[in-house]
Nucleic acid binder design. Structure first.
Lengths: 375, 375
DNA sequence: AGAATAGTGTCTATGAGACAGTATATG
DNA sequence: CATATACTGTCTCATAGACACTATTCT
């Protein structure tokens, strides 16, 4: 069991004694004080200078120190504001806005009179009392327990090339996971739905018009520590694309690869970033299932296509071979799955196959079952 | 096409002239100024008092006015900070923390020297220039385009009572949608995953131990305007429960109903809150499909159960009747779907049926297909 | 006895899977 | 010609669906 942790904010220069008292109150009962750094306080005699040298407001690199402070604050379980006589300094006010918007639990030494802020009475509590309460009941008794998260949409874009099922992977140019491979995707922007974000990213990464190709949710991944940058929740989408020109995806400064699915899951020396391997696994299973019950397989083929092309799709996605004859019969027996164009493909070895287009049917009844190997 | 909108923040009392100038700069080119309220400015001569009477900091109801201001700010497309000589007041600092954490686009009249804040140079721009840029290019050229959202988990808990498929609905006691029926659910708390939140809510609402009953994601709903309180994204979960005692769900101050599914979708005079009708629809389809391919149906039955009980599940969920004989044969032929206890149920009309428990199988192969009515 | 539900047996149509055989191109 | 692929036909077996029939209780 991890001990609870706190960050203390307030004007360190003006209310140094009060901040110190609060730090000690929490530290004494075993609550970890993430910020201000405890070393600054315990080595008080030798380190006092550094504490006093607390970034002066007009220094150009202040924001670097400040962002480190924010990391500490975000990593703690709750925040304690030292607000003697209700005083809230400027920086504290800013931190407070950030922290409350994040949905963190916030307590105050005195009622914060300097801001037009509504605070429940139980949130105003002496540090020593709060510390013992928390140790006793384990969890902050007052909190605003909602959490804000940043949202991303990640896309598993499957296609078939050289008879292999492949997916688009991007080499990350920024930390975290710099240099690793990751799924294409990005942050949801204001006024966007997840679906819209996914479509936009698909367009940006592959040039594919999202409205023309099927795009469906796989799952939402929300483990609190899945992204080291903070609370980032991602919704994965599954996109199925016909074979695309090589160039696409290699735009921008970023490199993109059409990686073989099995290799991306097992063989790649650089593992996939974040929990993207799980996502690919889930998307793959979803795609495999969809081939059984829906007509989605045709989305892998660029029109016009042959029955053989379609069979290759099933074989690549499912990973085993099917009987040509039976597949032919099955596919043709389903109403409006594929529609003959009347043409035949020429310049291929063997008898020229008939060409087809996608039909209007969306479900396959009866389904094309994978058999017992499905588990 | 909706015109872009801006909110202007800064110290209205100290930099009144600059704020006014900024408001006019945006208003002139047709950008809507959400805050400060334009009326205060245009009717300047008559309304000046009210503007000067801008909430004094120590008034007790300040936070009410402030939260209205926040609503306006959140509703605008970007924020302009009036920061003469880099001055950022206390309240502005707070607002700035909130707004940046939300991921809104923020511009400054001058570089904000009063906070240890990193701001890209392009974000420091004269109001008049910014206004014309925005009108020209339609979209703020500099933005931090990520958005933060609050997350909720909503649960569609299905059960069967009196041969009807029912789901748990809660009467909302608070706005929005006060008095309407809604799915049980709640906000994700810090350090919780969506799955954990769903389990917790399920426990709180029904007393069911989430670990003992299957709980699976349906979809994530993220339309930007789906919740009038702001950006709230919900992930729906599907839970399947055996018949529960009446009391459960009626705890707390809130009333809970086991509503018939069709009625909840079509007949209820008070419609479901938010987009919950869509969610129920999707969850229902998912449950119906799962009955075909998985052994989930047994989760509706409290052990021990009979083949007849199980058939009733299929009939209630799918909405049509099945042939007793064939169902019996089918169910028994699947390995480890149901396991006979050797007992029989007594005190029922008719021949006493044999009793069964859930088997270990999780998938049904071959599936129990619904037939062509599946569309 | 009659009503009610559980459970078995039987027949038929259909589809899956295996595989033989035919059609039509390329080189 | 061989070779390669497309496509058709046929046989067998398993299953779904329809329905007749038997079994065992309650009232």
């Amino acid at each position: 069991v991890k001990p609870p942790s706190v960050s203390i904010i307030g004007s360190f220069r003006q209310h140094y004694a009060e901040v110190l008292a609060a730090v000690q109150a929490f530290a004494e009962v075993g609550i970890e004080v993430k910020s201000p750094p405890i070393s600054t306080i315990t080595n008080l005699d030798v380190d006092f200078v550094r504490f006093e040298s607390d970034p002066p407001v007009h220094h150009s690199q202040d924001h670097v120190i400040q962002s480190r402070t924010f990391e500490q604050i975000f990593a703690s379980d709750f925040v304690y504001v030292v607000s003697p006589s209700g005083y809230i300094g400027r920086t504290t006010a800013w931190e407070l806005g950030t922290v409350r918007e994040r949905g963190m639990a916030v307590y105050y030494s005195e009622y914060p009179r300097d801001l037009p802020l509504e605070v429940p009475e139980q949130a105003v509590v002496d540090a020593r009392l709060l510390a013992s309460n928390i140790v006793a009941s384990g969890v902050p008794p007052v909190r605003r327990p909602r959490v804000s998260a940043q949202l991303t949409a990640d896309i598993v874009i499957f296609t078939i090339r050289d008879r292999y099922l492949r997916l688009l992977l991007i080499e990350r140019k920024k930390p975290p996971f710099k240099g690793s491979l990751a799924l294409p995707g990005g942050f949801v922007r204001p006024a966007e739905s997840l679906e819209y974000t996914a479509e936009r990213e698909l367009r940006e990464e592959t040039g594919l018009d999202g409205s023309s190709i099927p795009l469906q949710q796989v799952q939402t991944y929300s483990e609190p520590d899945r992204d080291p940058r903070g609370r980032v929740v991602t919704t994965a989408f599954l996109a199925i694309a016909p074979n695309l020109p090589d160039v696409i995806g290699a735009t921008d400064a970023k490199r993109a690869y059409w990686a073989k699915v099995e290799e991306s899951l097992w063989l790649t020396p650089k593992r996939l970033a974040f929990d993207h391997a799980d996502i690919v696994q889930d998307a793959l299973e979803q795609a495999r299932r969809q081939l059984e019950y829906t007509t989605i397989a045709t989305a892998f083929c660029s029109e016009p296509f042959t029955v053989g092309d379609l069979r290759e799709v099933y074989e690549a996605v499912w990973g085993f071979r099917l009987d040509k004859s039976n597949f032919q019969r099955k596919v043709k027996s389903i109403d409006d799955f594929i529609v003959a164009t009347g043409e035949k493909r020429s310049n291929v070895a063997g008898r020229p196959p008939a060409l087809y287009r996608r039909g209007k049917a969306r479900v396959l009844y009866p389904p094309i079952l994978r058999g017992e190997e499905s588990k």
